[in-house]
Amino acid sequence: MVQFIKQLWRRYQSVLSYLIFGGLTTVINFIVFGIFDQFWPYWIANTIAWLLSVLFAYVTNKRWVFESHTPTFRAVLAEMTSFFGFRLLSYFVDQGIMIVGISVLHGNSLLVKLIDQIIIVLLNWFFSKLFIFKDRQH
């Protein structure tokens, strides 16, 4: 049984790692949003939550999810630019969902945030897998 679990881990390590760290990133995003949403407009709370969770996501995606090894500063800079660029794109999707869900549909901000994060995690996985870390994986 242990051998079977190890085989599954090796085969699906990237996806499983992303689910674990993507889940943690989502938890960070959700908690930070919940805290700041009490004091500031939701779109400011969402921006702060996005910023902190993206910083966490970059480190965890680079090191443990996609095991990216960038040997030069130039390579690190290119990877970071790509990562933050695609995350900025997903930020606009994120803000759009929040605006529609809260301001237009008058939904509960935490419920809208939860639905939003499911969509954003999937979007970010595709960006990371297909564009950001694609040439840097083992």
Results as ranks from 00 to 15, higher is better:
Trp64Met: 00
Phe36Ile: 15
Gly101Phe: 05
Val59Glu: 03
Ile102Thr: 04
Ile99Gln: 10
Tyr91Gln: 12
Phe30Lys: 00
Leu105Lys: 07
Thr60Gly: 11
Trp125Tyr: 15
Met98Ala: 10
Met1Cys: 10
Phe39Ile: 13
Val54Leu: 00
Leu77Pro: 08
Ile35Trp: 06
Met98Arg: 10
Ile44Ser: 10
Phe92His: 11
Gln13His: 13
Tyr42Val: 13
Phe21Pro: 02
Ser14Cys: 14
Ala78Pro: 09
Arg87Phe: 04
Ala75Arg: 13
Val54Phe: 00
His106Val: 06
Arg63Gly: 01
Leu8Ser: 04
Arg10Gly: 04
Asp94Tyr: 07
Leu123Thr: 15
Tyr12Val: 07
His106Lys: 12
Arg87Ala: 10
Ile97Leu: 12
Gln13Arg: 15
Gly101Val: 07
Ala57Val: 09
Thr26Met: 02
Phe39Thr: 09
Ile119Pro: 02
Asn46Val: 03
Arg136His: 00
Ser103Ile: 01
Gly96Ile: 09
Met80Gly: 11
Pro71Leu: 08
Gly107Gln: 06
Lys62Val: 04
Leu130Phe: 09
Gly23Tyr: 03
Phe4Thr: 15
Trp50Phe: 07
Ile132Ala: 04
Tyr42Asp: 03
Met98Thr: 08
Ala45Met: 06
Thr47Gly: 04
Gly85Arg: 13
Gln7Pro: 03
Thr81Cys: 12
Val27Pro: 00
Ser128Gly: 14
Asn108Ser: 11
Ala49Lys: 07
Pro41Ser: 05
Thr26Gly: 04
Leu110Cys: 11
Ser109Phe: 09
Ser103Trp: 08
Gly22Pro: 00
Val93Pro: 01
Asp135Gly: 12
Phe127Leu: 08
Ser17Gly: 13
Val65Glu: 08
Ile99Tyr: 11
Leu123Ile: 15
Thr72Glu: 02
